[in-house]
Amino acid sequence: MILYLGRRLLGVAGVLLAIAAVTFTIFYVLPSDPAAAACGKACSDERLEAIRAHMGLDAPLWRQFTDFVTGIFTGRTTGTGQYALRCDFPCLGYSYENSEGVWDLLVDRLPVSASLAVGAAVLWLALGLTAGVTAALRKDTLTDRALMVGAVAAASLPVYFTSVLLIYGFIRLTGLLPYPSYVPFTSDPASWAANLLLPWLALAVLYAAMYARQSRGSMIESMAEPYIRTARAKGLPRRTVVVKHGLRAGMTPILTVFGMDLGGLLAGAVITESLFGLPGVGRLFYGALTTGDQPVILGVTLLAATFIVVANLAVDLLYAVVDPRVRY
């Protein structure tokens, strides 16, 4: 088990390094010049060169990359003299657009994206699994049909449409909820939830529909397994059979997908954040794209990749808990 974990962690580091390299190469051959963007109007060539040197953009690509990677662990200092900037471990570079370190920016925005992702995940798991399992246990009844038709329709709704509908219904028309603006959980949990409820719903509708479809299929499959028949034959109560045996085995594929989904969402739901105007990682990323803020683009990509890879690892480890057939 320890050996397995060590091997996997090594793999994770390798994957992240590869992603960093690819991202780096792509974005540092961008036609736009961050130095020119920072310099502003009427920028003399001399000043542009000075700014470029200050940003470290005059070094060759490989050099910039190795500086970046070692900088993550050892920290970096850019600029000289009184205006030198010190960026400590874990240094992901400095955003000249935001005048802030990339790491600090990410730490600042992550709670928003995480609140969005986790809240939505709780909702969609609850809704999706309930619907899926109910449908599976009442296979081919009217309930099953209705649930699945609803799920297919909901899964096909574009998120823009759902969001607009929610905003119109809950804010414009009835004034039940405030216009979303992020309030930290720590300062006012009730207001935090009220502000996030609509974004949660918008995301959850889509995912719950997908999870309902998936969990129904996987539940039907696992309920047909021989050991379920055995368990039933033993005279175990139906509830025990369904929850302890059927659901447990049926959840394995759901867990896999869930890991991927949550991992991806933690690093920002670009569209949902933009539709609701939430200051999360997704909006940070989108803003960075429109302003050519390369350190932030790189930072968010790495963060997102880390979440996905770590989520995958966590899921694989969880298998051992959920599915008794899996051993390491």
Binding site: G11, V15, A18, I19, T23, I26, F27, V29, L30, P31, M260, G264, A267, G268, V270, F285, Y286, L289, I297, V300, T301, A304, A305, F307, I308, V309, N312
Partner: peptide, 21 residues
């Protein structure tokens, strides 16, 4: 396959599309 699936795909697609003008 593992590597490709570890890429945050939407984020990457957006970025790649904005690179090539």
């Amino acid at each position: 396959m593992d590597l490709t699936m570890s890429f945050p795909s939407l984020i990457f697609m957006i970025a790649m599309m904005s690179v090539a003008r």
